[in-house]
Design a binder for these strands. Structure first.
Lengths: 209, 209
DNA sequence: AGCCCAGTGTAACTTTTGTTACTGCCCAGC
DNA sequence: GCTGGGCAGTAACAAAAGTTACACTGGGCT
């Protein structure tokens, strides 16, 4: 456990803090597709992502979940932070993108550390900043880009967090996360294939260099 | 000055903190249209909004500024906070929506107070949370709403922050902030007028109850 | 083998949004 | 009173995205 934490956070937290984290936190392992946080849930423990990736989604009014961004090793969810500190309900949904693990920290500890460790304070602020930045990117995507560009970005992001240029998703799943329809996704993917950007197979898409 | 701060923040900060703020901060008065923060700027002092309203914009790649949200009395800009703490460039533009004033606080003080005043720490976190929330609303607007709904929301927001149901903007200006074209705005506004939701005049729009 | 069905390809059409172009109107300044 | 320019109304068209409908296909299951 301590080893895992060190791997993910060794370069930003001091020894003492890592020891404390290891002591008070509980390890949670998750599988692809696990729902880690639901909209409307209260969050009592703050998660630190150790391995794997998590996707953060915003629910559509009717159906589908818009993908906001991914979290990777060393990240924490500022939305969750917000909920812990503010004692409010979660406004987002978090689903495991792939297999991984996280350390859960009691809220009271994270407040205590704010005073005690400068590195922790930095981490918390950096997390907020990163998340605000990611939200800005999400806004840019939605406001300034056409569907084809958004889709291509999506494929690249997906390839990155999974460390593989093979994307194992159906067109329908992609459509949900981009808040569009399956037909539109199929259409654009076919166009990408004709342009030589991807190779389409059943149940997977290969991103070509 | 101290009086102004007390009016805007009296219910959340303790006496001692308000005194300190009054001592170290400088008062800045601004007029409608003043550019308070530019994209790419470094920010060395953190602003606390005392009176008036400020709009926060995200620049389009080609042209136009998408409106993200408004700040009002008692708010601070988390983006700015992010820049102060992280010592990075601003990713957004801030323009005065109307006449007002703000207190500028040196960065080193705001860090010092994080340890010293619990109310300050709360304020900083609450600000971050509010901003994340606003960003989520912006995403919702962009992702899930059609232009007509976005426009109507825009008019309502505008009326609210200006405390008047008369909106003094040209269709072109509105189009910029919604990242669309003037013709589209005119078209939709005309439809709203026919539905009895607004009254169109030259250079202003009256929002009807 | 035969069947089923999720996943995909595609056509045809609609809706929404963006673009271009032109008209008229109001008002400030001469 | 005349005029020019900013602003708004509108038509006509183009592009992007969403919708409906249907055909095909490859695997898993009986």
């Amino acid at each position: 456990m301590e080893e895992l934490i060190k791997q993910a956070y060794g370069n930003i937290f001091e020894e003492a803090l890592i020891k404390e984290i290891a002591e008070v936190s509980t390890l949670v392992e998750f599988e692809e597709g696990d729902r880690l946080i639901e909209i409307g849930e209260y969050i009592r423990r703050m998660p630190l992502l150790l391995t794997g990736a998590i996707k953060i989604l915003r629910e559509d009014r009717d159906e589908g979940d818009l993908l906001l961004y991914f979290l990777e090793r060393g990240d924490t969810c500022a939305m969750t932070l917000a909920c812990c500190m503010g004692d409010t309900k979660s406004e987002i949904r978090a689903i495991a993108e792939n297999k991984g693990s996280l350390a859960m920290i009691p809220v009271n500890k994270m407040e205590e550390w704010l005073g005690k460790y400068k590195s922790w304070r930095n981490f918390v602020f950096t997390s907020y900043n990163k998340r605000l930045s990611e939200m800005l990117s999400a806004v840019d995507n939605l406001a300034f880009m056409k569907m084809d560009e958004r889709l291509l970005n999506y494929l690249k992001e997906k390839a990155k967090v999974n460390n593989s240029n093979i994307i194992n998703n159906t067109h329908q799943e992609i459509a949900y996360e981009l808040n569009t329809s399956r037909v539109v996704v199929s259409r654009l993917l076919k166009a990408f294939e004709n342009e030589g950007k991807i190779k389409l197979n059943r149940n997977n898409i290969v991103l070509l260099k």
